[in-house]
Design a protein around this nucleic acid. Structure first.
Lengths: 328, 328
DNA sequence: CTGTTAGCGCCTTCAA
DNA sequence: TTGAAGGCGCTAACAG
């Protein structure tokens, strides 16, 4: 079923049908009624492929995320969906599993669909990826981070700043003997930035991390629990442990619950992300809320505000808030 | 940059370039080398819109999910991505927020992209949605559930069976005084099916739920905690509580931890889904693993196995396993 | 308010 | 092994 079929049934020209279906230009009520009836009668489904080819205006948005394994990027994706909803644009989603070569392939495949814009997590791309994104001329939003210069738009928060502020927060509460529990930095550059910020805060006070246990793999509750056990076994006397994120920190809280360690009184625990699960613990987790939904939503809104790529780069800071919780 | 530009530079015809880029038909090494050089030189990016229009063979797959708010559907989406990876197909994702009218619009918008197949969660669609999916002629996989007749393919598990088996499991361990903690059935038909299965198991033993607390909203850890508190306050003496899912059940465990109730000894708790968080608790949650990643992956594999829709409907049972845990 | 003309960029078919 | 012609379904631009 094509426009031509509808046009024949409605006894008008193709372009009239096209205009009516797109609500464009002045149309008589008679024609509109006839066309809408014909559309219903023949069960016409528009072909956006043809429409996009003819108009060179696709309503697809490429989305490239590193992972869907924890709730962080699904939250970003929710924000993207929410931002896209009013405009009727559709996201085409790719997942890289933190592999820059896979990302390169993916970006190539997505650009072939002539998307109206591209949303991609992080700043770590191959040269080819970066060049293609630049050359595409479409709007490109790089998400999560604002600690580097974007191709076009950056939307996120300063992870170095967040790490620094968590350090300041713990120092202000009197903690002095710091440990750190983390996960794979190769895959999570932002966790490393937070760690750097934390170290700087300690350094400014003449302190340093007394010990750290870094899991060689992705973050998880279970990894957090095991790494805290290891850290405490190795280095007694710590009074505060910062975790690379909430998943890890919740594991830490579980370890404490299972071993009679009282969070805060015996040991301060501090996370990052502000996940629901941390706030639902018997003692809510002290952490930093990272506004992931907002990052996705704001990215879309920034793209939509100016569909053409302007000369200067744009950096949008979605910020973060310290959540006091009860564990620090 | 189009095929024509590349052809001019390589001094061959458009169609030769097209064939080389698609690895089709016999091509001389000379032509191939010249074309590949020209592609690199002009920085050609193929236009899949045009390609799809000409060949009527898109590599897009429509994916319609009700929500991304907890990890369940992101897990399914991961499975879909994993299944799609080898073929180079791209998912176009829509989220309905459990709204059938939004689903209807979404399905219409996605079908306009002439996807090779459609993957959609659940069986609850408007008549129009169902008719459109049927009429599209493409493969349609309905996920999560196998307790109803699909349009084409169903991939999932019997939720009624899972509920029944969790009841049998608890009965076999000697529990007799049952409560239930749930969430919004309007939005989660599958939770209701599990509840029905549970009730049937009890009934067969001459028992019934003594009380239930159902939260009027989506499931969450916090809702689970509050509802369990309410239930236990109202009905003392329960020895087992089944939860509508793991999110709720983890909240229940948190309530117990915070109130000196020993899971299993004082009160059995049982979830559904087999989430990581439940297994990382100080006492791992007794639950049923629902193989969500597998559902997504198998759906794609089933679609790919027979790209044309066959006469008979296909139902794939991805099953479930009881996870003994330590809370029941 | 409606229609005609001429593509969009690629691929299928047929011919060489 | 290569090419020419024609068309996929729709829309921009220009006329009427």
């Amino acid at each position: 079923m094509t426009l031509a079929d509808v046009a024949r049934v409605a006894r008008v020209s193709e372009i009239t049908v096209s205009r009516i279906l797109r609500d464009k230009g002045p149309i008589s009520e008679r024609a509109r009624a006839a066309v809408l009836a014909a559309v219903a009668q023949v069960g016409y489904v528009p072909n956006r492929i043809a429409g996009t080819l003819a108009s060179a205006a696709s309503n697809l948005v490429g989305v490239v995320l590193p992972s869907l394994s924890n709730i962080v990027f699904p939250d970003v994706l929710r924000g993207i969906h929410a931002g896209l909803e009013p405009s009727g644009f559709q996201p085409v989603v790719g997942v890289t599993e933190y592999d820059m070569l896979r990302e390169e392939k993916l970006v190539g495949a997505l650009l072939a669909w002539k998307p109206a814009a591209m949303i991609i997590a992080g700043f770590d791309h191959t040269d080819i990826t970066r060049r293609r994104l630049e050359a595409s001329g479409i709007r490109v939003a790089e998400l999560m981070d604002i600690d580097a210069a974007p191709i076009d738009i950056a939307v996120g928060l300063s992870h170095r700043g967040a790490g620094y502020d968590s350090g300041r927060h713990l120092l202000a509460r009197g903690y002095r003997r710091f440990g750190y529990v983390g996960h794979d930095w190769q895959q999570d550059r932002r966790a490393r930035l937070r760690w750097e910020g934390l170290c700087r805060a300690l350094q400014e006070t003449g302190l340093a991390l007394l010990d750290q246990a870094v899991f060689d793999g992705p973050s998880s509750t279970d990894a957090g629990r095991r790494m805290l056990a290891e850290l405490l076994g190795r280095t007694p006397g710590l009074d505060a442990v910062a975790f690379s994120n909430d998943d890890m920190a919740v594991g830490g809280v579980f370890h404490c619950i299972g071993h009679g360690i009282r969070p805060k009184q015996d040991l301060a625990l501090f996370g990052f992300n502000g996940l629901d699960i941390g706030q639902a613990l018997p003692i809510p987790l002290a952490t930093i809320r990272s506004n992931r939904f907002l990052i996705g939503k704001v990215a879309v809104e920034t793209i939509m505000a100016t569909p053409r790529r302007p000369a200067e780069r744009i950096v949008v800071n979605t910020g973060y808030e310290i959540v006091e919780g009860g564990t620090a």
